[in-house]
Amino acid sequence: MDLQVLRSFQAVAEGTTVTDAAAEAGITQPALSRALNRLDEEVGAALFQRVGRGLRLTPAGQVFKEYADSILDSYDRGLRAVAEVVDPDAGVVSLAFLHTLGTWLVPRLVTGFRESSPQVRFELHQAGEIGLAQHLLDSTADLIITSKDPGHPLITWRRILVEPLWLAVPTRHRMAQRRRVRLAEVAEEPFIVLKPGYGLRNVTETLCHQAGFSPLVGFEGEEVETLRGLVAAGLGVSLIPASSRATAPETGPDLPVRYLQMTDVHAARDIGIAWLASRSLPPAPRRFMEHALKATAGPREPGAPR
């Protein structure tokens, strides 16, 4: 079985036309069609069925694709591992991370790592909590940095730090001049939150329940910057990660948002790094993982209120 034929099978299975897949492989379209037919004979079942002008996987093809993906992934990872043995200072780190961590933690870790490994290249992806785990499961990332344990049996997660959360209120809010409050004091106010499925949404609901109430949702967004903007507009309050508070623009005495420390709940979220338990990390990603664990040992809390 030819690996290039497997790659072409994978490409067609994922929506590439046979003509384009043939061009990518550097062969003619009839030659690729014959190769796919021989693959059917080797497997012992038709892998594609024609639907309109395109091809769609048969049930047998869907099963076979899972194994083809695994074969190609293992082969590519093997090439990477050998290349890094030959040149241990090189390599690629494929890293996916939570949006809010792209403003402080990820740049800090990458910069520190490149001081000792300047030739290592990074492939970076941003996603929400659910998307991050999928990056690992789809083999599009070696490592993910996320705000909670994905809780998946195939994923190993290690906490690297605990990030504080602040209560963000508008500058004209009745408690804006205070530094510390109880979360229960805003139980009757609308909360600006992330949509369900985001880790910060789960943390917000959990902390509110610990304070004795269910949050009244005023708006559901997809970015922490949106939460902060709507708080500044006076539409509600929100729990904001310390890192986002630390990178917020602050000019003059009339700040758009005030950040208050909460005293009745332990307002924080876990930040961790994760990888597939069943897969051996190549040298460069393993070194980066070890660097991340070491570099975040005993970190200072970002964004302490003034």
Rank of each mutant, 00 (worst) to 15 (best):
F64L: 05
N37M: 14
I160Y: 05
L3N: 05
A211G: 02
Y75E: 10
L255K: 12
S33N: 12
R286C: 04
S8T: 05
F113Q: 02
E225F: 02
G102H: 03
A267I: 00
H291Y: 08
L101F: 04
R50C: 08
T171G: 04
P302Y: 06
E24S: 14
E222Q: 12
D264N: 09
R180S: 06
L95T: 02
D40C: 04
P118K: 08
V237K: 04
L161N: 02
Q261W: 12
T251R: 15
V193Q: 13
F122I: 11
D20R: 13
E115S: 02
V12A: 10
E24D: 15
G212H: 13
T58K: 01
L98E: 09
A274Y: 03
Q261R: 14
R53Q: 10
E250D: 15
A90D: 13
R228W: 02
R108Q: 12
K65L: 14
S116L: 10
E185S: 14
R159H: 05
L260N: 09
R180K: 10
G303W: 01
L154V: 12
L105M: 06
E301L: 05
E222G: 12
F213L: 08
S214P: 00
D142P: 13
V51D: 11
R108D: 10
E301T: 07
P285G: 07
G229V: 00
R201Y: 15
F213A: 09
E66K: 03
R108Y: 13
E222C: 01
A304T: 12
D69K: 08
R258S: 09
R108G: 07
T251H: 15
E66N: 00
M289N: 01
S278P: 06
I273E: 07
E250S: 15
R287C: 11
E185L: 07
L161Y: 00
P215K: 03
T171W: 13
E66Y: 00
P59A: 06
D2L: 06
E129R: 11
D20Q: 13
K65S: 03
R108T: 15
L32W: 02
P150E: 03
V181Y: 05
R77G: 11
Q49R: 15
R108V: 08
V51L: 12
S116I: 00
I27N: 02
A83D: 10
P170F: 03
R179F: 06
E290Y: 01
A68T: 15
F122L: 06
I71E: 12
R300C: 09
